[in-house]
Simulated assay, not measured.
Amino acid sequence: MAGTGSLHDLMRHYDQHLARLEDLRALLHEQLAAATRLRDARAARRRTAAVEEALERMDRGCYGTCLRCGALIPFEQLRRRPQRRRCDGCTETGQGRHEAA
């Protein structure tokens, strides 16, 4: 029964992961609502599109993966900017500097 503890640990980590995803989904919906209230229509469309793309990636199961290097984006980075598409490392290299992180 040595594997039972490991299975329980895996399930606990999985449950934590799902809870974090739900927290991030809630943040994205808050940002979507805030974007619709922006006075600058162009900025509102850009921000709305970025948030909707993040929600779509979440639904497809590829949310939280850097589009440049393929690494998982740390939760703390996603908490700061849940619609981000790149990790801090790839954003700092200048790749996609004009593109939303």
Rank of each mutant, 00 (worst) to 15 (best):
A35S: 02
L78Q: 03
C66M: 07
T65G: 13
R12T: 12
L24I: 11
A35E: 02
A26H: 11
R42I: 11
R39M: 02
E22Q: 09
E92P: 15
Q31P: 06
D88F: 14
L78A: 01
A33L: 07
E52N: 04
G94F: 12
C62Q: 07
Q83V: 03
A26K: 11
R39L: 15
L78V: 01
H17E: 11
T36I: 12
E52H: 04
G61K: 04
A50I: 08
R85G: 04
E22I: 02
R39F: 12
T91I: 13
V51C: 00
D23I: 09
D59N: 01
M1T: 10
C62A: 07
Q31F: 12
Q77H: 11
A49F: 03
Q77N: 03
R37V: 09
E52T: 09
G3Y: 07
G3C: 13
M58S: 09
P82V: 02
R12C: 14
C66G: 02
R84W: 12
L78E: 00
A50K: 00
E30G: 01
C69E: 07
G96H: 05
M58D: 12
T48L: 04
L55W: 02
T48Q: 13
T48F: 02
Y63G: 03
A41I: 12
E22A: 14
M11W: 14
C87S: 09
A71H: 05
H17P: 13
R42A: 10
R60F: 01
R60V: 05
R42S: 11
R25P: 02
H17I: 04
L10E: 14
Q77G: 05
H8A: 14
A19H: 04
A43G: 15
L38H: 06
A100T: 03
E92S: 08
A43P: 09
A101Q: 01
E53M: 07
Q95Y: 15
E99A: 15
D40E: 09
Q77S: 10
L67P: 14
M1W: 10
L21R: 03
T93L: 14
L10I: 13
G61C: 03
A54E: 10
R20E: 15
Q95T: 10
T48K: 08
V51L: 01
D15P: 07
C87L: 07
A43Y: 06
D40G: 06
H98S: 15
R85P: 05
H8R: 12
R42Y: 14
L18T: 06
G70K: 01
A100V: 05
L10W: 11
L24R: 10
I73G: 01
P82D: 00
R20K: 15
E99C: 11
R45Y: 00
A34L: 08
P74H: 00
E30D: 03
E92Q: 13
R60T: 12
F75N: 12
C90R: 05
Q95W: 13
T36M: 04
E53L: 08
Y63F: 06
A44P: 01
L55N: 01
L55V: 03
G3L: 09
A54P: 14
G94V: 11
R85A: 12
R84L: 11
R79D: 01
T4S: 11
D9K: 04
A43R: 10
A101L: 08
S6V: 07
Q16G: 13
R68S: 02
Q77I: 07
Y14C: 06
R81H: 15
H29I: 05
P82N: 06
T91Q: 13
